[in-house]
């Protein structure tokens, strides 16, 4: 019991921390851009502070927007449709059971029309949460397996993983947006500006250096953000698997669900870099290169073997590992 309370407060703290780090980063980033734009005008600091304010305001607004509406955005971009108890009785029942077991309110239930089996949970807290599953998942899983998958999603909701992953998605998104803007600025305006500043050679050089520093920052932060996204979400997946078993009291359901998910080779249609870490198994199979460092999800074989440890079973035999390996 202590474990998930600790997990909840860690997630609340990390979400806040992440928001502060992103705002700080945006401030520095904005200042560098503004300073570079205004270079040579004699009002570099004013330009820098102005851009800083703009960047922080944009960052805070997008943070607030993601906090209150990010889940709807994620659901809409995944083409998820809300269903009622009459439209999907079994799905609704199993979600209800898992909500009871986790002691959280009933989330909204969504279905994505896609043959590739997958599922995710999103929202800002357990009172404002949603679970989406694909039609492929409903077709391929039996009741026990569905329960294992939904138990996994429900523990993401209970642990406040959904809030943190929502913030991570926005962080990646807004940094990518700014880096894109910065690169475009360098290409379209940087060249022209250098021409005007020809009478001021040393200054032009400094502007270029600032631009290069900003560019490096953009690349490094994007890279670092992606690494954070991957590392944290991998640890979360192991934890959510274990919590799912705690909720369902049945390790075999999730285990066989994972095996079925692993043997599916189709990619989801409506998924992108900002939403891939939300899903129970990596939805971008064709893009998954296999590098462990850049994977948002641990290999399924590892996840299955960890579940088998819980029941004292032997790990999977090498032949079936061969069959599943290379898939995320």
């Amino acid at each position: 019991m202590t474990t998930f309370y600790a997990e909840q407060s860690a997630n609340r703290r990390n979400s806040l921390l992440l928001a502060l780090v992103v705002i700080l980063f945006l401030a520095v980033f904005g200042f560098v851009i503004g300073f570079s734009i205004g270079y040579g005008s004699g009002h570099e600091v004013a330009f820098g502070v102005g851009a800083l304010v703009i960047a922080v305001v944009i960052g805070s607004l997008s943070g607030l927007f993601s906090y209150y509406g990010g889940d709807k955005l994620v659901l809409a971009s995944s083409h998820a449709k809300e269903v009622t108890a009459d439209q999907a009785p079994q799905l609704y029942n199993v979600v209800n059971e898992m909500a009871l077991a986790a002691g959280v309110p009933m989330p909204r239930v969504y279905v994505i029309d896609d043959p590739s089996p997958n599922a995710f949970a999103t929202g800002r807290d357990p009172q404002h949460s949603s679970i989406a599953v694909t039609t492929g998942l409903l077709q391929k899983m039996n009741r026990e397996e569905l329960q294992g998958v939904l138990g996994h999603e429900m523990s993401h909701i209970r642990n406040y993983d959904i809030r943190f992953t929502l913030f991570v998605g926005v962080m990646i998104g807004s940094i990518a947006l700014l880096a894109g803007f910065f690169l475009r600025y360098t290409f379209w305006f940087g060249g022209g500006r250098r021409g005007n500043d020809n009478d001021n050679n040393g200054g032009g050089g400094l502007a270029i250096i600032l631009l290069v520093v900003g560019l490096v920052m953009a690349v490094v932060s994007y890279f670092f953000g992606a690494l954070v996204q991957m590392a944290v979400s991998r640890q979360r997946e192991y934890l959510a698997d274990a919590s799912s078993v705690e909720l369902t009291r049945n390790p075999h359901g999730l285990e066989s669900a994972l095996a079925k998910l692993a043997s599916d080779r189709e990619s989801l249609h409506s998924v992108n870099g900002a939403t891939q870490h939300l899903y129970i198994v990596n939805p971008m199979k064709k893009l998954g290169g296999g590098s462990a460092l850049f994977s948002t999800h641990p290999p399924i074989v590892d996840r299955i073997n960890r579940l088998r440890q819980l029941t004292g079973e032997q790990p999977m035999d090498p032949a079936s590992v061969q069959y599943l390996s290379g898939m995320e």
Binding site: N96, E97, L100, A101, G103
Partner: peptide, 20 residues
């Protein structure tokens, strides 16, 4: 099938509610 599903979910809900 529908009755079986309803009874199964009720059964599970009872056991989760009992834990609670």
């Amino acid at each position: 099938l529908s009755l079986q599903e309803q009874l199964t979910t009720t059964e599970n809900q009872i056991s989760f509610s009992r834990q609670h």
